[in-house]
């Protein structure tokens, strides 16, 4: 029989790092739900039902609401970023990846299934312009002034740059097979080529290919560490996460994470939280030791949002 006193004592004896406050929201793309995970206990506390297929999220510029896109459900959910309470549902066509321009003017929504890049007014959420995209617009990133958005076109191996001031395409250029993650870093555009084993380096002004960095088969997503010193590349086929030096882009360390690492978030205690698409789990990695623990969530977890101030109540 488990002694409650013993459990309490063990909990109190755990190192402070393992009891980090806050909660994590996970988008279970094949379970039509969002998992709320308590960071301290590393347990799933509850599930929020959604219509069909939640994949990614973005935060309103003023931090008032967390927007989660349900692609097949054709709607965006507006959640309280602390309690995860549902505040509003907005019908929007195929919201896969989404992001606000840094100048707070526009919300850009990639419709991967419908081959469209939609630009919405960030205040009224009315459609300003739809760009037909050939094909499968996937991930996106902006220039710091919000004037340009870069979108990977997964179906045709290209990247496109759209001028959000003039509302016109600036260039569309080849990058590699099935490009996914895209990131503007030190004046260079980095693109993870999922159908290959590398990240392309492009000139953001022209789309000209400047070089490639080998990271691992199925290079999928790019994430910048909170201190800006590292860029993590998650490789879907090799099931690895490679930490690159953000300045030199040289590989510093490779973490083996079986189960298909996809999106990731950084916790204040230094741990990195990954969604593991094939394993239907989260992995919590200690980057110092390379060890990780796992947490059961819903089927095919994709996007992940971590808030140290969030409350994981039932």
């Amino acid at each position: 029989m488990r002694s409650p006193i013993l459990l309490l004592a063990l909990t109190l004896l755990l190192p402070a790092q393992a009891r980090a406050a806050g909660a994590v929201l996970v988008m279970n793309s094949s379970a039509a739900s969002l998992s709320v995970v308590d960071m301290a206990t590393q347990k799933e506390i509850r599930r929020i039902p959604v219509l069909r297929e939640p994949h990614h999220w973005t935060m309103e510029p003023d931090g008032a609401a967390l927007l989660v896109g349900d692609t097949v459900g054709n709607e965006i959910l507006f959640l309280d970023p602390v309690t995860f309470e549902l505040k509003r549902r907005l019908p929007i066509s195929d919201p896969y990846q989404l992001g606000f321009s840094p100048d707070r003017k526009y919300l850009v929504v990639n419709g991967i299934a419908r081959n469209q890049i939609d630009v919405y007014d960030a205040k009224t959420y009315t459609l300003v312009k739809r760009f037909p995209a050939s094909t499968m617009p996937s991930h996106l990133d902006f220039t710091p002034d919000g004037g340009t958005v870069f979108v990977t076109l997964q179906g045709t191996g290209k990247v496109t740059a759209i001028d959000l001031r003039k509302m016109e395409v600036i260039w569309t250029a080849p990058t590699g097979k099935a490009p996914a993650g895209v990131m503007l870093q030190n004046g260079k555009l980095l693109v993870a080529n999922m159908g290959e084993d590398n990240v392309s380096i492009l000139d953001p002004a022209t789309g000209k290919l400047l070089g490639r960095i080998t990271t691992g088969k199925g290079a999928h997503q790019l994430f910048r560490s909170p201190d800006g010193k590292l860029i993590y590349v998650n490789n879907r086929i090799d099931s690895t996460s490679v930490a690159l030096d953000a300045t030199t882009l040289a590989a510093k360390r490779t973490y083996k994470l079986p189960g298909g690492p996809d999106d990731m978030e950084f916790a204040p205690d230094g741990h990195i939280w990954f969604t593991m698409r094939f394993a239907h789990k989260l992995a919590v990695l200690d980057p110092a030791t390379g060890t990780f623990t796992t947490i059961d969530v819903g089927r095919s977890p994709h996007g992940i949002f971590l808030n140290p101030k969030a409350v994981a109540s039932k």
């Binding site: 499968m136 179906g155 097979k177 099935a178 999922m194 159908g195 199925g218 086929i237 189960g259 094939f278």
Partner: peptide, 17 residues
């Protein structure tokens, strides 16, 4: 992870992952 993904990768069909 063990069958479909490597197959899609080998056939240049990773956009369907």
């Amino acid at each position: 992870e063990t069958v479909l993904y490597p197959l899609l990768y080998a056939l240049d069909l990773m956009q369907w992952e």
